[in-house]
Amino acid sequence: MSEQAIELSNVTVRYGRNLAADRVTLEVPHGSVYALLGRNGSGKSSLVRCLLGQQKPQEGTIAVFGQDVWKGRASLMQRVGVVFEEADAPPEMTVDQIAEFCGDLYTRWGAKEVDSLLERFGIDRRARFGTLSKGQKKEVLLALALAASPDLLVLDDPTLGLDVVARKALFEEVITELADRGITVFLTTHDFAGIEALADRVAILKNGRLVLQEELETLKARFRRIRFAAKPVAFEQSALRTALMRNWGGGAEAIVTNYDDVAFEQFRGTDAEVSAMSLQDIFLAVSGEGARS
């Protein structure tokens, strides 16, 4: 059995002349919580569709649990739960009908789990799917995804449309619980605060290219913001690499991508302040305008 739950190798997706994903290679270990980050239109959803075997990339290979997802989609979906960014269930079906429909298709269907989750989310089971709010739709689809007892849960921007309470519940209860059970979670999100405490690994997609992919802890350890009261001399020649360098007041601000104390030693005498960065700051530094990707 492959050590990776998901393996993307040189995946390229094009829409006419537009490049949605450019030779993306990434690996998601079993039991990890993996966050794919990127701005709108960066190609996240295209990659999600590809890794679910719903769209064929122009180039590259994708394996889920070691199996080619394009060829083995139908059987693999027994082990994969999915919640898309846009709720895709038929709007005229009631929640009960949707649950019944899904129950007929999965071999590991947990009807009680659906009941419990729907009750927990406070969803009216007789309501037509189309009449539910955006957040409720997400919750229904999440309940369906979890009821299939998946080994992999794919969430494409799951917090979109969720209120603060539901968002918090999703991250702090649902995903944490899944992670504890060893279920692999692959998600795309803009909710950096929510994912920061949960993700094992993160990847950042910029204009279709994967500019970063590593353990979140390592990432946070090597990124630093350094603010100089005056413009530093020969900073460019130092061993520190910058993702961003800009004027800050009378001095300068640098986002360093390989911070270590030894390399910083030569600037110790200058009026410089080093601070840790949040995932959101790192994301902005890496994928924002002016970033050196």
Partner: peptide, 16 residues
């Protein structure tokens, strides 16, 4: 409408 993904997210072959 982008709703065919509902079926393709399920363990059911395209032919089915």
């Amino acid at each position: 409408d982008g709703r065919l993904s509902f079926y393709f997210s399920r363990p059911v072959p395209a032919a089915a």
